[in-house]
Design a protein around this nucleic acid. Structure first.
Lengths: 136, 136
DNA sequence: TATATAAGTCTCAAAAAGAGACCAGCACTA
DNA sequence: TAGTGCTGGTCTCTTTTTGAGACTTATATA
């Protein structure tokens, strides 16, 4: 009944929210953004933007990531085409991770956001403190 | 023993990874980025950048968010100072959410990233397909 | 022989997210 | 006057995701 009305209405509005065509399921922005908006992706992109790193180096660089999440996040970044994984036949074999062209391209705007974060973390922290103080 | 060596070494490297001083716990970039790099934040920022919305409107705009996560994400965005929450004494009372100056400031670089996503989702999708095909 | 290192995988516990019922106050309707 | 719907949530329960830590396989080193 009115579920049809709602779905029609929201479809138009989602069109705007996704600032592109298509429906919710394959909204381009959501599809791409959800791949990088998680706890570890931007941190690893930041590290790899500097230079290629090996698995163990990344683990030491980000000591509070679990091995499992490092494996998985790198795998996901590789799947989306941001990261290249190369195995070297040393003994024991070593694996190097580096940014692809697509990865470097994406890091451009990401870097802007990271810089904003660095510049404005004082304001965010202040807002947080004010909010927490007001809650009591 | 060598845990001391490791912690010294990683501290230096984290310094670079965080592109700012301080230790891991209060790394500015991580602190700010982790607040916005989750499933719903950027989507809601995108919606509110267009115009203020009420709770129910946002719910209809993003039909696949649960009421619980909408409440929580808006609360978190408000706590970090990106979003302003205003209650109007209508009957029943309505609540409007809008971006603050800090929110609009942050949306600048975020928007760049969203535009990149829109422009390059084809490349990402292609990489994903290639990766999945190669896996078999 | 014992230990370390490489890059992971596996299992289990804890945390986070999603689904859906429920709430209070008021307006409209039958 | 009882029923229905609207508002913006909260509460509880289940499922998914994440984290902690042991285990792996092959080689090198002490």
């Amino acid at each position: 009944m009115d579920s049809k009305v709602v779905s029609l209405k929201s479809k138009l509005e989602i069109y705007k929210a996704c600032s592109g065509g298509g429906n919710l399921a394959d909204c381009p922005v959501r599809d791409v953004i959800q791949g990088i908006s998680n706890k570890w992706s931007s941190l690893l992109m930041m590290a790899l933007a500097e230079k290629p790193y090996r698995f163990g180096e990344l683990r030491r660089l980000v000591p509070d990531i679990s091995q499992r999440m490092l494996t998985q996040t790198l795998h996901d970044l590789q799947r989306d085409g941001y990261v290249h994984r190369e195995v070297f036949p040393t003994k024991p074999p070593s694996v190097e991770y580096s940014l692809t062209d697509l990865g470097r391209s994406m890091f451009g705007p990401l870097h802007q956001l990271l810089q904003w974060a660095e510049l404005n973390h004082g304001a965010v922290r202040a807002a947080r403190n004010a909010f927490d103080a007001a809650e009591t």
